[in-house]
Amino acid sequence: MATATRVTEADRDTQTVTLTVRIKRTQPDEGIVGKWQEFRVEASPLDRFLDVLNKIKWTQDGTLTYRRSCAHGVCGSDAMRINGHNRLACKILVADLGTKISAEPMLGYPVIRDLVVDMDPFFAKYEKIKPYLINDEPPPATERLQSPAQRERYDQGTKCILCGACTGSCPSVWANREWVGPHSIVNAHRFIFDSRDRGASERLQILADRTGVWRCRTIFNCAEVCPRGIPVTELIEDVKRAIVYGSPDVPTD
């Protein structure tokens, strides 16, 4: 992630800059595929890049197409490639992007229109690793007990918002669209290392096959771009170790 440039609230109105924003456009109705278009727009250093996109859409070109919802980095809608890195448009400020900014759809996904990609294959891969608690034992009348240490063991994976930034930055995904991708392994990790779950062996079996964890070449792009700060590659290594040792190391209390 870029280091934070020092700007303060007071700069919001006084330090406006003129940005040159290049956007890679795809407009299927007009047969336009991946054509760069340049916009000039005024912005404050404290504006999110999403604010800049909104400004272009609302004042210059209503056809500009991108997904967005929460606008503060928790819903995962607006992952895109900004200045060559996958980021959430709502979680990066103009101050950190400079005055010349490029935006394009994430690599590794079919493009629907402009910055919008088809996430269906991404979610299908997520579903493949059984991303839900597997435990057929009848639950107690109250909660299942879990110690703070057991809870901490799988904490990192629970932060995932399924934005797709990791998977879209992974050269192994670009090379082979069949492989499950870092996001699936992160979410498998979240259950494999949960002391309440009984599905670890099923998931490890899925991840041990040729579209599973071994396609990860520890390039670390995924961890670098994760907007939630999840150490994705470490979690993948954790799962690799569980496969090698035959079971995950979950704290017993």
Binding site: T142, L145, S147, F191
Partner: peptide, 19 residues
């Protein structure tokens, strides 16, 4: 709330393992 916990919701825990 117990139902959500049974579905796997990762609540923070007390030292004795409760929600």
């Amino acid at each position: 709330v117990y139902e959500l916990e049974h579905w796997g919701l990762p609540f923070n825990r007390t030292d004795d393992g409760r929600i």
